[in-house]
Every structure is written in C-alpha cells, then in structure tokens.
Design a protein around this nucleic acid. Sequence first.
DNA 1: CGTAACTTGGG
DNA 2: GAGTGAAGTTACG
Length: 799
Amino acid sequence: MSEEKTIIEFQPLDVSYEQEGNNVFIVIWAKNRAGETITLLDWRFKPYFYAILEEESNIEKVKNEVLTLVRRKEPKASVELVEKKLYGKPVKALKIIMMIPEQVREVRDRVKNVPMVKDVLEADIRFSMRYMIDKDIKPFRWYKVPVREVSKKKYRSAKIYEVLEDPIELEAEASFPSLKTMVFDIEVYSTTGSPRPEKDPIIIIGLMDGGLKQFYSENKDDKETIKKFIEEVQKIDPDIISGYNINVFDWNYLLQRAKYNGLNLDVTREIGKSPATSTAGHISVAGRLNVDIFDFAQEISEVKRKTLEDISEYMGVMKKDERVLLEWYDIPKLWDTGKEGREKVLRYNRDDVISTYRLMEKFLPFGIQLSGLTGIPLDQLMATSVGYRLEYYLIRKAYRFNEIVPNREERERESYKGAIVLKPKSGVHENIAVLDFASMYPNIMIKYNVGPDTLVKECKNDECYVAPDVGHKFRKEPPGFFKSVLSDLLAARQKIRQQLKKLKPGDPEYNVLDERQKAIKVLANASYGYMGWQGARWYCKECAEAITAWGRQNITFAIEKAKKLGLDVIYGDTDSLFVQFDEKKINELLNIINSELGLEIKIDKIYKKLFFTEAKKRYVGITIDNIIDIVGFEAIRGDWSEISKDIQTEIARLILEKGTTEKAIEYTKEIIRNLKEKKIPIDKLVIWKTITKPIEEYEVDAPHVTAAKLYQEYGLKISPGDKVGYVVVSGEGKISEKVKPYFAATLDEIDVDYYVDHQIIPAAMRILEYFGVSESVLKQGAIEKQKSLFDYLSSKQKK
DNA sequence: CGTAACTTGGG
DNA sequence: GAGTGAAGTTACG
C-alpha cells in the first residue's frame, strides 16, 4: 500500500454514504479501466440546505440567530450568506452547512421557525444524491481523480481509495467497462395457496451469469440451497443483479428464509451486510445494482398481462410454445410426483431464468443511458416514476443555473382541459397515413417559453406570448428554465441522430447512441406531464393548461388545412392526424404546417387497412409492413377467467386477418358450444382475486370473500395479499352463494349460463360491439345448433 | 333502480 | 422517494 497520491480513472455504478462516529463519508462504488471493482471514499463533503429570508430582514441578525440555533445541535455547523435564484429571481439565502445528514431534518424544522426566515429549501435531497449533483458525477461516465489508497477490510473491492480532489469527467467517452451481470429466480413449495416464508421452503434457486446453475432442495430443507446461493453470488461477484419481480417477491422471501435457517444473506459488497429495503420500494444490494426487470416490463403498455411469459414473448426472447408453462399452484404437486415432475419444475425455473437473462440484455442498454442522463443510479432509477426521473435531471440543471430547487408541496388535484380527440369516422378504411407532430408539447414549451418562472400576470404589448382559450401569459425574454433545459435536450437528441446517420445499425456505438437518444426523448416528453403533476417541485398548472391550449390550436389548424387540400380526415388525437394517403397532398400539408407553425410534422405510419369503431381511441389496423396494431381495446383484466382472455385475443386476430367479423362470431359460438358440452377444462374457468384485508372485516359477501371462507373450511389460511381461485357452479341465489374453491369443484357442476353471460359474451362484445354485432347473434346461433344437446343436459341436471 | 363495496398489476 | 383514480362487477337497500 502506498501513501502516495495517484490519479485513477473510474466509472461510478452507485453512490451511498456511511457514518463512523461523527464522521460521514461518501462511498462511490465503481469500476476501473481494468474492470476491477473499486471503492472511493470521500470525506470532504458535508450536508447542507438553504434558508431564504424575508426581503426586509436584517440579514446579519438573522444569520447569527440561525447560527446559534444550529450550533446548539451541531457545534461544528456553519452558515454562509449566498446569492441564489428562485424561479429566476435573485434571492439572498443562508446556506446552512452541517456535519451529519440525519440531523438535517430536525435542524431544518427549527430554522424554519426563526422569525424572518421565509422558507427552508433543499433539505430533502438525499445526501448521496446531493454529492452526485454538486460534483456533477453521473453513473456510467468516466472520471479521473487524484486519490490515495487506503486500507479498509469491510468491502468486497479490489482497491479502496480516499478521494483527494473533485473528480473530473472525461467527456465524449461512450465506452463501458465490462460489467458482470447475474440473474436469479426462486421457486417455492406451498400446498396452501400463497407461500409463507415462515413455513414454506424454497425448493429451487436458478441462477445465470452467462451459464446456468440450479440449486435445489429435494427434501425441502432449503438451508443448503440458500448457502450455495450465497457462495455462488460471492464467487460471481456481479455488478448487476436482475430478476423478475425480485423487489417484491424473491429478495424478501430469500431474506426471510435465510433468517429462518439462521443464515446471513451475505451477498452484498459490504461484508456481512444483507440486502435491505431502500427508497422507492426497491431492494438495495450494497455495491451492486439490483435491477428488477419487472420495472422495465411495467412500462410496456402494449402488453396487458405483465407475466414473464407474456413479456418474453412480446420482446421476442422466448416463445410461449417453446418453454415449459405451469401455474404456480401446480408446483407442489409436480415436485412431489417423482423424477418427471421435478424435472418439469426445474425446466420451468430454467426457462424463467434464461428468459429473464435475455430480457435483461435487451433492457439494460436503455436503462444505462437513462441512468447516465438523469444521474440516478440504475437500481433506484427503474423503481421510480417518470416524474422523479425528470425531476432529478432538472435539479442537476438548477444547480448549474444557480437556482434553488423548490420544495415539494401538498396540493389539491386540479383538473384542466386537455387535448382534442376527434370522433373517428367508423368503419373500414384503406390506405391511411398517420401524421404526427414531432415532440409537440416540448416544442410548444420552447416556442412560447412556458414555465413557472416565465408565467406573468401582466405584461406590455408584444412582450408576452398569450395562450389561446385560457389566456395565460409567458414573457418572451429571457429564456426560462424549462425552455433552456428542453432546448438543450432536443438539440442533444438532434446531434445524436445526425451521428447515427453515419453509423450502421448493429454497431456497438450505434446501439449506445440509439439508446441514448431514446432516453432523451423519454425525458423530454415527460416535461408536460410533469408540470401538471401535483407532486412536482416545479408544478405549474397554468403552464400545463396553456400547453394543451396551444396543442389544440395546432391540431385544429392542421385539420383545417388538410380539409382545404381535399384530404379526408378520419381521426385525430392530441398530436396526430389520420388522413387518406395521398402523397402529394400530404407533402403539401406537411410543408404548410412546418412553415406556418414552425413545428415539425411527419408521416408516422401508413395503414393498409384500418378498422375504426364509433369510440375514440379504439382501432385495429394493419400497416404496410404487415404489423397488426390493436389500440385501445383494453384486454380483459387478470381477474377474469382464462377463457375470457383467450376469446378476446382470438377475436382481435380473426377480425384483422379475415377482414370481417364472421369468423370471430363463429369462433365465439364454438366456445359457447364447447362450454355447454363441458369440453372446456376447468382450469380455464377459474377466477382469481386477491384478498385485501382480513376476512372478518369484509362488510359484503362478494364471491371471492365467500370463496375465501370456504378455503378456511378446508383448513387453509387466508390473509391479506393472498389470491383466491374459485369457479361459479350451478344452483340458486346470488353468485356469491354459488362459488366453490377451484380445487373442490368439478366440470359437471359449472354454471354454464354464468360463464356465457358474464365471461364469454362480455369479453367478445368488448370488441364485436364496435363492429355492429349484437349479443343475440352470439347467443342465438349457439343455442339453435345445440338445442337438443342443451335440452338433454339441462333435463339431466334436473334429475 | 341507484348506491356502496370491492378489485385491478405481478411472483 | 408517488398515489390517485379510473373502470368494472356484484351486493345491498
């Protein structure tokens, strides 16, 4: 070990802080050029916050008062007078610098009560984030920094350094050190519904770091299995750990089973420390990035059911018919039925692990870019909402602009008028072009200098932009905070898109830049929604209201011009127009809009065939590239039976493929026939619902509550959060008097009428009604054809 | 009939 | 370090 000062280069993964006695230091978990894990400790940084003062206050007097007060709690604290800006206006503020982050909250409350202190700000920014913001350190970027190597035994890290000066970013470096990734998935044995860690063991832990490993407990004693898992994680020493829904299920279950077995889940890079729940509900694994793939999946609105199987299929990493599919409640049965059953469960686990690994490979590049852009460490980033992601980006910008960050405030929800949605011309259309304004809302914000700091009540002629409809005024000069930030973002995106043109898709550099421009787009597009979100620090209802007003003006203008050119407008929503695909006229239209509005509009896609319903926001179409789009037909939810879900997907597919409703109607009738003939497996008829509170607290005997009570009669415990599966059987009275737990019912008992009227027909009609099909059409055919059989069956039941 | 109660997503 | 709230179904009065 040397006492010498050296300069090293590193790329941060995550930043945290620790306290030893009265010393607080920042911990930067990082990789060096050699791909080694290194840890940088910085003792030089202290927590702080601001107090802004009333204008007429005696600054020195207040400053001394605050200092005395703060020093009572923290003798080493100091107070400085600083010149800052708040919403663009210069303000004098006291910067209160402390020693220990945990004490900021208490001191802040005291300072707030000092006379002449108007407000206390930036006291709620997490210390490690504060460090990254102030030092301009972002994950996945290269930095160089003078350091001295130190000795500390507590980290799983090749080298540990003390930071001597502020790190400096090495610009324009898009390379990455090789990161070690790992995915895991656990299977649990439970014969009594939802698994409980206090009694139900883990039977398999599947793990993949390129190669696949599975640890399992044939005798249901999971102590050895968990031990092997801990050893394996330590051996792999991953930088990134992923899994599917691990933040909610796997980690917690593992932690509790480890505890039950007297083990310490010693898998972090801080020796002896186990994973723990952290901010935004994510599980923090010190020194490693714990990234839940489910968080990425949640953002894919095209996939309604977010199971690992469905997402894998959609993302093209594993088809459903190429993998083992089984329901979680079948696992114990299979595990207990000899070698064959066990192997099936193992293959199921293997397929889950492999598909999760592949999903990770697909999603990570985008996540890494978004993390580098927003500066939020990847493990937290994916667990937060878009609002927070944009907000941290804004906070970093505010720091550079010498702006104080506004506080989060509790507000009432205020609604305002939104965008224009045209009533569609229903029916079948051919050759339809969809025209889209490019980033319309961000561009409106830039064009009219919209923002909380540019909003004014009064202004002289021509010095303001006035929003149509609502009349809000925004001064033209100087550029506001949002305009500056958004102009930079969109310019950066343009620059990247120029670079992309020179590269080949598939090049590593192309992929990195492409993911980066996508991340920028996501962030820019979040800016309008952010202003209308009550939780936003830069909340501005007038801004959001003005933006939609200008948006309505734009689209109305475009519709009028299209009509003048003789283009038939089929539909329009917010920033898009559906018109006949007449290339010449469309180009003319695009030019007019571009020159007169100063906004870019382009052809987004062209549909060969498009079915429009009477309803807004609902259509199905097939593009010239033969891609089928189903928009707005909300799929049947998870608390419906399998059969309903099957029907809806199949109907959408049949309508598009055949171009008429005929086959879809036929298909529905066939399902009804099969149901009546009891040819549909009972599994397809089970309805699953979650129990959300203790059974005795239910005021109403809803079907799932009755089912839960029946579960209890079978000796099964039911607690909040448990899923209850039931079927509806024939009989008299209310539906809730006719339910049976799925495991206690047989196909013969099924209430066919209930399933036809409440599951099959509503699911089918959800789509078919928009094509003029009536319920009776579905029912009649099925009854007519099956009349004799139906009569036979019902008479048999009467006996 | 209107109104109240309850769930929705995932493992 | 969101949380609300929409839509949908069934029970209740």
